[in-house]
Each structure stands twice: as structure tokens, then as C-alpha cells.
Design a binder for these strands. Structure first.
Lengths: 163, 163
DNA sequence: TTATGTGCAAACTTTTTGCTGAAAG
DNA sequence: CTTTCAGCAAAAAGTTTGCACATAA
């Protein structure tokens, strides 16, 4: 009987294995960071989090891994405005979508259960096999009938967006 | 009576004027290029088209203009994968969406009349005022039951995508 | 006439890559 | 043992910006 000494494989690591990827220490760490993320980190942020678990990791590796996993369909790239790509694990069946607050870049997730099925039908009707989709909604927070409109509202594309 | 010698203002130029923008020669040209585009040009492409109409224009100006028009809500930025931002005029009411062929980057447009109304409701329910949305569907062309599977299929992100 | 826009080239930011040593299978 | 991966630093790609001149209103 083999004794399991290491922490169980993370969900993303599982998927990597299923896709036949060679599991290096670095990939395992990045996979774990991704599995534990419940937000939409960009490469910098993934790198930061990975470096905490294992400092002998480089940004280049994070870039290469993230690209690889995207090609395998394990990760999805998002663009919420802000100049850098952000990533989240692909969820099959239980898709969620994003509402981005244009004033501060904050991201709110929402669901629409019928949506994915509908999009698969659209793809099918156009002669395509569904691979993935993105739905991004941009909005401004509605003020709850409170007046002070002289706020310093950042308007242009900013670099450090949240969530 | 004033004689109109110049070509009529382009649709985008109209919008610029309505937004109180100073109309320089360059902006007029870019506005026209945008008005006449029925695809999703990136900055390079806009620059190329604009340079045909007026060669004393620079890429920097195209970047600045495109950014300005996006901030004014006249243009919308898209990311179809391929590393550069692509632009199209905002359409109010008659939104269309994009299906991207993951194998060759080609973009097909499709409509869904109920969709925008539904998204406005979602935004509203979450306490936001609808600003804009993006919907991108990625798919692989379904082979019409014809077998030859040994094709040289480009897989990674390529730089010169179509449409 | 004044505020704003433009061209140019340099700077910046994000992402990719060539090369050499390392490690997975 | 062979093939693929990682680190590093250099380069590429896309986009922004400072400055001096030009131009719209």
C-alpha cells in the first residue's frame, strides 16, 4: 500500500494530468494557486501568489503555463479593461458572467443558467462546435436617490483594477 | 445659401460633434474610416486605411482618437484574441455579437434581439445602469461529415487574425 | 487668441523567446 | 536517456507620452 505524503492534487493539477501534461514542481504550484483562486488574477498576481509557495519560480513560467492551460481549455482568458489578461478556471456547465463597474473596475459575477445552453444552440445553428464563451456587462453603479454628484470620478483606463 | 463642397459628415463625425469634440482633419478622416468599416479593425488597420485618405496622420493620433472615442462611448473595444484591441462603432439597440473561429480567428456576427433587453434587466437588478456589453462565442467549425483529419491545424495564438 | 490636438521619437508595459542547464517520464 | 521544461535576460509587440509646433473654435 502506498502512503500519500503530499497534499492531494489540486483540481487543476488533476486536469493537467488528464491532459497528459508533464507535472513539474512549478506547474503543480501554479495549478494549486489557480485552483484556490476565487477571483480573476492576472499573470503578475499569479506570480506573486506562486512565489509565496515556491520562490524559485519565474514570471516567464507563469506566462508559459497560463498559455498552455488556456490552449488545453483548462483556463479562460478575460479582458476586463486594464491592459492585462486575467484568468479563471473553465467551468463546464455552470458558467458565470461578469459585470464590470466602469468607474472602479470592480467585477461582480452573476449567473444565467439558460444562457450557456442557448449559446450552444447558436453555435450549432451557425455550424460550429461550442468551445467557450465570454459575456461581459459594463455598468455604472446606480446611486440610491442620494444626490452628491461632485465626486472625483476616475474616467480613463486605469492599471490596477480589482477582483 | 451656403454651398456644401465637402462630403457630408460621416456618422461618427456627427457623434463627435454632438459630444463637443474639436474636429481636426485627422479626426475627421479617422471618423470616416470608422463609419465606413463593417468589420473590426485594430489600430494598425485603422491607421493603414486612414493613411490612404490623408498621409499626414500618425499612429499615435489613431491611438489617441480611438481611446477618446471609446471613453465617449462612440466606439467599443473588442478582444478577439490575437493580442491587439479591435474596434467597432457602438450600436444602440441593435446589438450584435461575435462568434470567433478558434482555428483561424475569423469572426462571424450574429444577433439576438432579446439579449440586450435581458442584460439591461440583469444590470438593473444588480443595481447598475447598463453601459455596454460584449458577448463572444468561441467555436470550431463543424466538419460536414467529411473525414480527412490530418490537416495542419494552427493551434496557438496567432498575430494576424481576420475580420 | 487660447486651449487643444498632432507628429515624432523615446519610453513603458505586457508578453514572448533563445539559450543553457534541469528534471520528468 | 530523451524530451520537454524552467530560469534568465534580451527582445518583441502594443500602447502611451513629452515636447515643440500646428490648428480649431
Amino acid at each position: 500500500m502506498t502512503l500519500k505524503v503530499q497534499a492531494a492534487e489540486s483540481r487543476i493539477e488533476q486536469l493537467c494530468i488528464e491532459h497528459g501534461l508533464k507535472m513539474t514542481g512549478q506547474r503543480r504550484v501554479i495549478a494549486r494557486v489557480l485552483s484556490e483562486a476565487d477571483d480573476h488574477p492576472d499573470v503578475e498576481e499569479l506570480y506573486r501568489r506562486a512565489a509565496v509557495l515556491d520562490s524559485r519560480i519565474s514570471v516567464a513560467t507563469v506566462y508559459r503555463t497560463v498559455r498552455l492551460l488556456e490552449e488545453k481549455g483548462i483556463l479562460e482568458r478575460r479582458d476586463f479593461g486594464g491592459g492585462r489578461a486575467r484568468y479563471e478556471a473553465t467551468e463546464h456547465g455552470r458558467h458565470h458572467y461578469h459585470l464590470i463597474d466602469v468607474d472602479n473596475g470592480k467585477v461582480i459575477e452573476f449567473e444565467d443558467p439558460e444562457h450557456e445552453a442557448f449559446m450552444m444552440k447558436v453555435a450549432d445553428r451557425l455550424g460550429f462546435e461550442f468551445v467557450s464563451m465570454r459575456l461581459e456587462l459594463f455598468g455604472k453603479k446606480r446611486q440610491p436617490a442620494n444626490a452628491s454628484s461632485g465626486k472625483t470620478t476616475p474616467r480613463s483606463r486605469r492599471k490596477g483594477d480589482q477582483t
